[in-house]
């Protein structure tokens, strides 16, 4: 809700009269049109009334109208949202599972060559711009090697159905999901490794050793379970970045999601759509956070039990 308020003020902070801006978008900026718009959007009313109306609109899922696309913003977003959800969720699952697995592996081999190799790789991915990695991936795997499709969501006009279509989408999904996931995988891996090493100095690990447990059991049952908590917290906090990163990935791969929609609207100066996408992406982050919160509660018995 606060995001909606922020959105509203951002719209009003835009240089110039919103009505002129909106009229400009509509393509006809004569006086009459502007006056009409002003009346229609209540721009001649005091600010708080406008705010109230805007919020009321959002509650009813009315995000305004895109003149450029000639459709309500909510329809545009609804049409694109599944593709974005598919992409971000896949990338999230890949990066989190691979990141934790590699972090555990690196921590178990700390100081050895394989650890240095993994940490260096992570550092490298951590420093690589997402969109550039995406471009290079297209160049290598799509243009040069021709293994995977580099653009789009599915083969246009192929008319696949059922399983064949799913397979087609999957092939299109691999590159975007991987490039989006790699950066976050690096983040989670570094975090997991550091957290594993931190926990491995804890007293209860010494207790476990004194009980005669084997190294593998100690790592799995004692260290990992405790080390994973801060990683889950971080993953929740990073969800916002993941959604932001989707804008870039979708742009490069022409993935028909809301990120791509945002990019197109940027070029067209379609403010209503930009803000609508922004609002929806913020809502997605909240969704991600609810998920991590649930995971956290499952892993840590102390939460909820503490009364």
């Amino acid at each position: 809700m606060a995001i909606a308020v922020l959105n509203f003020f951002l719209l009003h902070a835009a240089p110039g009269d919103p009505a002129v801006v909106l009229a400009g978008e509509a393509g006809a900026a004569d006086e009459q049109m502007i006056a009409q718009l002003r009346e229609r959007f209540g721009l001649d009313q005091p600010l708080y009334v406008q705010l109230g109306k805007y919020i009321a609109g959002i509650v009813q899922l009315d995000l305004g109208y895109s003149f450029r696309q000639g459709a309500p913003v909510i329809d545009l977003i609804a049409e694109r949202l599944p593709a974005t959800l598919l992409l971000t969720l896949t990338a999230f699952v890949i990066s989190l599972s691979a990141g934790i697995a590699l972090g555990v592996a690196a921590a178990a081999r700390v100081g050895k060559v394989s650890d240095s190799l993994l940490t260096t790789l992570a550092l490298l991915f951590y420093a690589t711009p997402l969109y550039w990695l995406a471009l290079m991936a297209v160049l290598v795997f799509s243009v040069w090697l021709g293994w995977l499709p580099g653009f789009g969501y599915e083969t246009v006009g192929a008319g696949y159905g059922g399983f064949a279509r799913a397979w087609d989408i999957l092939k299109h999904l691999i590159l975007p999901a991987l490039t989006l996931g790699l950066f976050f995988m690096a983040v989670y891996m570094r975090m997991t490794r550091a957290s594993m090493l931190e926990v491995s100095t804890a007293d209860f690990v010494k207790t476990a050793k004194a009980k005669g447990l084997s190294g593998a059991v100690i790592r799995r049952r004692h260290i990992l379970r405790n080390a994973i908590l801060p990683v889950v917290t971080l993953a929740g906090l990073q969800a916002g970045q993941l959604v932001g990163g989707a804008v870039l990935t979708e742009t490069v791969f022409a993935w028909p999601g809301i990120g791509r929609l945002m990019f197109e609207s940027l070029a067209a100066r379609d403010y209503n759509t930009i803000l609508g996408v922004f609002l929806v992406s913020a809502a997605m982050v909240i969704l991600f956070n609810i998920v991590t919160d649930i995971v956290y509660r499952i892993v840590d018995p102390r939460i909820g039990a503490k009364v």
Partner: peptide
């Protein structure tokens, strides 16, 4: 051979 430690607060795994 078994061993017990000084800090009972931290010597047990908090999640088990």
């Amino acid at each position: 051979i078994a061993m017990i430690f000084q800090e009972p607060m931290t010597a047990l795994n908090p999640l088990m």
